[in-house]
Amino acid sequence: MTNKLLISTICSGALLLTACGGGDNNQPSFNSKEKLDFSKKENIEIINETVVSISNEYENPIIEIGTIAQEIHNLISNQNPDHHTVSCQSGSAILNNDSSVTLNNCKNLTVNSNNGSYPIFGRDEVVIASGTIQAKFSQSSNSEKIDLTLINFNIDFADELHTVNGKLTKTSTSMSNDIYRDLFEANQFTYKSLDKLDKTNNYQFIINNYTLTSDYSISTGEIDSNAKGQLTGDVKAKFFSVNFNSHFAFNNIQYLEKMDPSQAKLDIEDINNKQNSIVITRTTNGQALINAYANNRSVMGFPQTIDWIEFY
């Protein structure tokens, strides 16, 4: 599962952000879809790739889409002719009376300032954004919290379309003089990705009861992350629903970005059949050891050892 929603596509700085709270009333139905068979190796790979992608902050599609939405809201709601303005090549970007932002087929959203102009997505291709973004910021003496509500928020690239509905939050807290914590939460958060060139690469998922806690040590640079929740996915025309619980540790941000954990444990369980499960751990030589079970029997081809980077 790959997509073009990378944090690096945003030209100006933005806080990482992910999901929490309620959701929209138009949840996709999976009743007519083929249920994914845990006994097939290729299906295990589909589940692993999806769950690993939301178990850490880096290249996490939930965090990435939230970061983009928050940046857009900040830029539009804080426009000032003496500092910057925001414009669309066509379509519109409007700040509403309730402080929400509505994008209507906004083509090539651009920031204009005395220092020049730049497209928010930093691309040569046409990018069209639509939907409504509501944002609420609050803080205390040692923490900051950002709540987002995304309503039919979508980003349309030449070859990909990403659509999100749901409420999102991120809480950043100074736990001590050394530990800084980011807490991400989500419930009934729906994400869809459409590959216009390869329909077999389309996917959608719903996140429920999702939390991702990431602790960063200022003195050592070490990162310790724990994630858990429920994921219902539709990938390659097959659906699955699993509970997951993970713990990853990284020596520093560079190790996180190249998916090279110093510690790792990820447990995945089929909600519909608890005898179907996947366990991913870190081996002594630093690779990922995958054990997969269907009806409590080891799936053919497992245990399997791969490089962590293969999950990306």
Rank of each mutant, 00 (worst) to 15 (best):
residue 119 P to E: 10
residue 103 L to S: 00
residue 120 I to W: 01
residue 64 E to W: 00
residue 14 A to M: 08
residue 101 V to L: 05
residue 139 Q to R: 13
residue 80 N to G: 12
residue 13 G to D: 13
residue 32 S to T: 14
residue 89 Q to L: 09
residue 113 S to D: 11
residue 74 N to T: 14
residue 24 D to R: 04
residue 130 S to W: 05
residue 125 E to V: 09
residue 139 Q to I: 01
residue 127 V to H: 01
residue 58 Y to P: 02
residue 83 H to S: 15
residue 19 A to C: 12
residue 24 D to V: 02
residue 136 K to D: 08
residue 63 I to T: 13
residue 133 I to T: 04
residue 15 L to V: 07
residue 78 N to T: 14
residue 28 P to M: 01
residue 43 N to P: 11
residue 45 E to N: 11
residue 68 I to W: 09
residue 70 Q to G: 15
residue 42 E to Q: 12
residue 16 L to I: 09
residue 65 I to R: 01
residue 49 E to L: 08
residue 30 F to E: 01
residue 70 Q to T: 12
residue 110 T to I: 07
residue 132 T to P: 00
residue 103 L to M: 06
residue 80 N to K: 05
residue 59 E to R: 11
residue 67 T to A: 10
residue 76 I to N: 00
residue 95 L to T: 07
residue 147 D to I: 05
residue 29 S to T: 14
residue 113 S to A: 12
residue 96 N to F: 01
residue 146 I to K: 10
residue 130 S to K: 01
residue 137 F to L: 07
residue 107 K to H: 08
residue 13 G to K: 13
residue 88 C to G: 04
residue 129 A to I: 15
residue 10 I to D: 06
residue 33 K to Q: 13
residue 24 D to M: 02
residue 26 N to M: 09
residue 98 D to K: 02
residue 125 E to T: 14
residue 26 N to E: 15
residue 121 F to W: 03
residue 94 I to D: 11
residue 47 I to R: 03
residue 115 N to E: 09
residue 106 C to G: 05
residue 142 N to V: 10
residue 94 I to T: 15
residue 147 D to T: 06
residue 23 G to F: 03
residue 65 I to Q: 04
residue 84 H to L: 10
residue 47 I to K: 02
residue 22 G to V: 02
residue 60 N to S: 10
residue 64 E to R: 04
residue 134 Q to I: 08
residue 124 D to N: 15
residue 64 E to A: 15
residue 83 H to F: 04
residue 75 L to M: 12
residue 77 S to A: 15
residue 119 P to H: 03
residue 82 D to C: 02
residue 68 I to E: 03
residue 102 T to H: 10
residue 115 N to A: 12
residue 127 V to S: 02
residue 21 G to M: 08
residue 66 G to I: 02
residue 83 H to P: 05
residue 134 Q to N: 13
residue 23 G to N: 06
residue 35 K to F: 02
residue 82 D to M: 13
residue 86 V to Q: 06
residue 119 P to M: 10
residue 99 S to I: 00
residue 134 Q to M: 08
residue 31 N to I: 07
residue 75 L to D: 06
residue 28 P to R: 09
residue 97 N to C: 00
residue 123 R to L: 15
residue 140 S to R: 08
residue 37 D to Q: 05
residue 144 E to T: 14
residue 85 T to I: 12
residue 75 L to K: 14
residue 9 T to S: 09
residue 110 T to S: 09
residue 20 C to A: 15
residue 117 S to T: 10
residue 8 S to C: 03
residue 92 S to E: 11
residue 105 N to R: 11
residue 117 S to A: 15
residue 39 S to Q: 10
residue 38 F to V: 10
residue 93 A to C: 12
residue 146 I to H: 03
residue 131 G to V: 03
residue 61 P to L: 02
residue 125 E to G: 04
residue 7 I to R: 09
residue 47 I to Y: 00
residue 117 S to H: 08
residue 146 I to P: 04
residue 129 A to L: 12
residue 51 V to C: 06
residue 78 N to D: 12
residue 44 I to M: 04
residue 79 Q to G: 08
residue 18 T to Q: 09
residue 113 S to M: 06
residue 32 S to M: 10
residue 85 T to P: 03
residue 139 Q to W: 03
residue 31 N to A: 14
residue 86 V to H: 06
residue 128 I to Y: 07
residue 72 I to M: 15
residue 91 G to V: 02
residue 83 H to V: 14
residue 36 L to F: 03
residue 133 I to Q: 04
residue 63 I to H: 03
residue 76 I to L: 11
residue 141 S to M: 08
residue 119 P to W: 00
residue 43 N to Q: 09
residue 129 A to C: 11
residue 90 S to M: 03
residue 80 N to E: 11
residue 51 V to S: 03
residue 30 F to C: 02
residue 124 D to H: 10
